[in-house]
Amino acid sequence: MELFKILKLEFNLLLNRKEFLYAFTVSLFLMIIVFFINLHNFFQEYMMNIPSANQLWVGFDSLIGDLFYMFLLPLLPALAYADTYYLDIKTGAYKSILTRCRKNNYILAKGIVIFVSGFIVVLVPLLINQLLYFIIAPLHSTKNLLGWPAYMFIPTHNMIFESLFLSNPYLYNILYMLLAGLVGSLAALMSYSISFITNKSRLIIVAAPLVIYLVGNFINALLGKANYCLNYYLQGFVVIGGLNADYFFIVLTISFIVSISIIFFKNMTVKDELY
C-alpha cells in the first residue's frame, strides 16, 4: 500500500517536473518538424507518388531519425527524471522522505517511475509521428523510398523482423517504437543506477548513458563492425549486413541486470539511512 502511495507521489512529481516536460517537448518537436519537412516535400504531389505512411515514419528510414537514434535517444530519457534521486540527496529531501516511508519502497517506486518516464519520452513522440503521416500519406503505396520502380519491392533481407514487415508493416513500426522506448527506459534506469555510485555531478549521471552508447557505437563503427552498433537495431529499415537480434537483446538484458544489480547491492551495503 505504501508503495502505491509513493508511486502516485512520484508520478505526480514526474508530470510536474520541468526537465521531463522539456525532454518530452524536444522529442515531440523534433518528430513534428520531420513531419512538416515531408509535408513540404510532398505538397501538391500526386497521391501515387507518395510512399506509404509506414515508410515515411521517422524511425523507418530518415536522416533526422538516424540522428535522433544516434545522439538523443539515450540523453532525453536520462534528462527526464533519472537524476531525481541524486537531487533528493543533494537537497536533503531524502531525509524527510525516509522518515515517512521505507527506503526499499522509495527506491523501487523511483526506479519504476524513472523506467516509465524514459519509455514515455521516446515512445509517445514516435507514435505521434506515425499518426501524423496518416494525414498525408496512403496506407499502402507502390512508391518506395529507394527511388525504385513500382514493380520492384524494397529489399527486406537485412531486416531482423522480416516476416512481420511483410505481413503487417504498421505492427512492425509499433514494435520498433516499443524497442526504442525500451532502450530509452534502460538509459534512464542506467542513469538512475549511476546516481547510486557517484554523487559528484549531475552532469555525469545524466550524460553517462549517452557517453557509453556513443563510445560503444563509435568503436564498433571504427572497427568495421557496424552490425554491432545499437542504433541500427532501432531503425526499421537499415542496409547493414549481419544484424543479429540475439546480440541486441543480450546487450539490453545485460544493461538491465547491471543497473538493477548496482541499485540492489548499493542498498544492501549502505546501511546508514540518513546522510
Partner: peptide, 15 residues
C-alpha cells in the same frame, strides 16, 4: 540515365 554495376562497399554497409 546512367548505369551502375559491380558495386562493392566496405564494412557491413550494403547500399
Amino acid at each position: 540515365n546512367i548505369f551502375h554495376r559491380n558495386i562493392s562497399i566496405g564494412g557491413n554497409y550494403d547500399a
